[in-house]
Design a protein around this nucleic acid. Sequence first.
RNA 1: GGAGGGGUUCCCGAGUGGCCAAAGGGAUCAGACUGUAAAUCUGACGCGUAAGCUUCGGUGGUUCAAAUCCACCCCCCUCCA
Length: 424
Amino acid sequence: MAQESIVTELESRKLIAQLAGGEELVEHLASGSRTVYCGFDPTAESLHIGNLLPLLALRRFQLAGHRPIALVGGATGLIGDPSFKDTERKLNSVDVIADWVERIKPQLARFLDFDCGANSALLVNNLEWTRDYEMLGFLRDVGKHFSVNNMIQKESVRQRIERDGEGISYTEFSYMILQSFDFSELCKRYDCTIQVGGSDQWGNITGGIDLTRRLHQQQVYGITFPLITKADGSKFGKTEAGTVWLDPAKTSPYAFFQFWLNAADADVYDFLRYFTFLPPAKIEKIEHADAASNARPVAQGVLAREVTGLVHGEQGLAAAERITGALFTGELSGLGEDDLRQLEHDGLPCTEVAPQTPLLDVLVESGLARSRRIARDLVNSGAVSANNAVQSAGDDPLDRNLALHGKYFVIKRGKKNFHLAKLA
RNA sequence: GGAGGGGUUCCCGAGUGGCCAAAGGGAUCAGACUGUAAAUCUGACGCGUAAGCUUCGGUGGUUCAAAUCCACCCCCCUCCA
């Protein structure tokens, strides 16, 4: 089953930040089918692309013949991971977390195969083994194995402890113990011997390794992935609209596609390694070809298609490409009424506006501008066009005579923000 | 419980009675240039067409005038108990 070393595969994709276990871990993975886990805390109603890397990594492990466990943090989500967070977070209610857990489960499930024999994936919730654990027992059985002296040395919480003006509650401080306990519990229940996660999880993972050794006299291992950074230093995973979510209702496949399409040249080849299943050799070929040509690189298009297909399937990808094609080629007049309806259906943001609504209000209602004041600025700077015609009179309503099929306007703000306005 | 420090516009952070819608930086947006890149330059960045209006943890007060002073309350941090 386990043929080519998964470690080699991850290395060739630059996906390994740290190994807890070194050569022994490599050997451990090479010598049999192992069980690997990664946790995902419900911090919102949907996963986002920050979760994509570990999620795809689990799949890489499965493809290499290992058994993945996706853990949803129904328990840890109630506490909040303080790792490298510079402020204490406010707690969400129990009901909200429970709801998020249920929403996230299917998102995790779609990347893994639950029906492929011995290495079928597992989906678990750590609330299962923590909910009814009696407090005194927990403190005696588990807490006794943790040294506070050791815990406060962890880099992941140090800034919280040392930085002036910030602190850490006992609740968040305990997070590491819970996650450590998860690892030991998965080891006991499912013979899980490897935990993977982002490099910010190093402290929590090694905590779990120590605890498992003490509790079950079992050697387990950890692998962390590099923090995804962008060449220009800005934060990965954010756009002007905020977080890029995996839920198509929160980030449309079109917006998702656009996010990847806009990857910087300096980042795109690494992103191909990180976020697609294309062989590294092929990625290198693309990189060389792009470097040799003077035209616009093709890598962004490949990346956008691959990842969108992975996350939103063939249909989502097709929808995203339809919108992109219609909007960025500028050929609006060729669009039939059915095409426009399809674009709306595909997820191009659409607003119905009353006839005679001044353009400024259309901009505000559609969300293209936050206020009329801003809208006016945009119009004055020539940033707004309707059906490819630059608009200069913000107080005038959209002219029905210029509408596509009597009612549609493709409103553009700036170079790449589109909205479909439909006259009522 | 005691002592001290602090809560300013998306973030950081200046501002200690009028010249404050509030310095500076970051983020963001737009224009130019481009490849729906990067870098750079320019402009915008509480709301309002404007006059003007509403903001500086909360409530109340002093004053012609408060982010700035007073009282009480809430929250955060540090040290002591």
